[in-house]
């Protein structure tokens, strides 16, 4: 199924891309040609962050952006090659499912830079990687969440316990524990990145088990919280507009600093085979907390803001714990 979906999406993407190219050719003299290859539909929270940053960069006139979405693992290396052959100078995407093959493709196209979300490290001169590190913001959200719970039980719904998800949930817990050492934690993994009804059921199960604050790594979690009238924290993007009464804080992740750094390196002709993860840090503007002041407990804000400042000036480091939370 996924093959056919991806093929259609690929055709659609390239068709739209060609159209975009045709219309913007006049003004595209200095712009860097950037292609995005998304393994999921761009609705996926994570992909939407990349997509949004790329669109914004295109709007700012920094890059020229074409993309494909829903590209399955079996098609992924081929899509990389096609975009490289088409003369794109920077190809942005994710190599989680194709770590080896993606690096082989990069080795075949030394004049193209690759910037991939990856669980492995960079390779060669042109294969750069990045991690999704919004754990600092999650820690701060945990600090705000701590005094809001009546039961002292904090739930979290995640997709799959990969390091990036674990680090995030563990950081949220560390933030809660700082203000509330006796807090009890629950976690549920739904085994897929794309099943909001299941994430909702997982959230409801945690509420049944006594949780009254949910950390939603997956969309659907906040729906459970909303249904039961409790509060929830969002991750990656701002869920408050979607759930105004429910989501009081979001651990935002911004892809733009990583993108800008890579674009700059490509334009300067510098080596791009490096780890761009540090641009995810709060001091680079790669992640931050957004919260509704009216929904949180006033007294908890100053301590959180102080910690935020400490993270930014480097005097406090949020622990990075990739072990599977229980």
């Amino acid at each position: 199924m996924s093959i056919a979906v991806s093929r259609r999406a690929f055709l659609l993407g390239t068709a739209a891309g060609t159209l975009a190219l045709a219309t913007s050719r006049v003004s595209a003299a200095e712009k860097l040609k950037v292609a995005g290859i998304h393994a999921s539909p761009v609705e996926n929270a994570w992909n939407s962050r990349l997509h949004e940053a790329l669109l914004a960069a295109a709007k700012d006139g920094v890059i020229e952006y074409t993309f494909s979405e829903g590209v399955s693992g079996t098609d992924y290396p081929r899509a990389m090659r096609e975009y490289a052959e088409a003369g794109n100078k920077l190809i942005v995407g994710e190599s989680y499912a194709v770590e080896t093959e993606a690096r082989q493709v990069a080795a075949d196209y030394p004049d193209t830079a690759f910037l991939m979300g990856s669980s492995g490290g960079p390779a060669g001169d042109n294969f750069g990687t990045f991690g999704t590190w919004n754990h600092e913001a999650a820690y701060l959200a945990g600090m705000l969440a701590a005094p809001m719970s009546k039961t002292g039980t904090f739930g979290a719904v995640g997709a799959i316990p990969i390091p990036e998800v674990n680090i995030l949930i563990n950081a949220f817990r560390a933030g809660v524990s700082e203000a509330r050492p006796d807090a009890k934690f629950l976690v549920g993994f739904i085994g897929t990145f794309f099943d909001p009804p299941k994430a909702r059921e997982s959230g409801l199960a945690q509420i049944d088990a006594g949780a009254d604050i949910l950390f939603g790594e997956r969309i659907g979690t906040a729906d459970a919280a909303k249904e039961k009238g409790i509060k929830s924290v969002g991750s990656l993007l701002d869920y408050t507009p979607r759930y105004p009464e429910t989501v009081f804080a979001n651990a935002m992740w911004y892809f733009r600093p990583i993108l800008d750094a890579a674009v700059k390196d490509v334009q300067a002709g510098e080596k791009t085979g490096k780890d761009y993860s540090p641009y995810s840090f709060m001091k680079e503007g790669g992640n931050d907390i957004v919260f509704s002041e009216s929904m949180v407990i006033k007294d908890s804000i100053p301590a959180m803001e102080a910690k935020r400042k400490a993270i930014k000036d480097g005097s406090f480091k949020v622990p990075v714990d990739p072990s599977e939370p229980t």
């Binding site: 199924m1 056919a4 979906v5 259609r8 999406a9 659609l12 539909p41 761009v42 609705e43 996926n44 929270a45 992909n47 939407s48 962050r49 997509h51 949004e52 829903g70 969309i219 990656l236 993007l237 869920y239 507009p241 979607r242």
Partner: peptide, 25 residues
């Protein structure tokens, strides 16, 4: 039919709803 119907849903959805990380409700 499964391939056709799921791809067609994706196609119609993509053409008629603006891309967003938090799709309309």
């Amino acid at each position: 039919i499964t391939l056709f119907a799921s791809s067609l849903s994706y196609y119609i959805f993509r053409l008629s709803i603006p891309v967003s990380g938090s799709p309309p409700t």
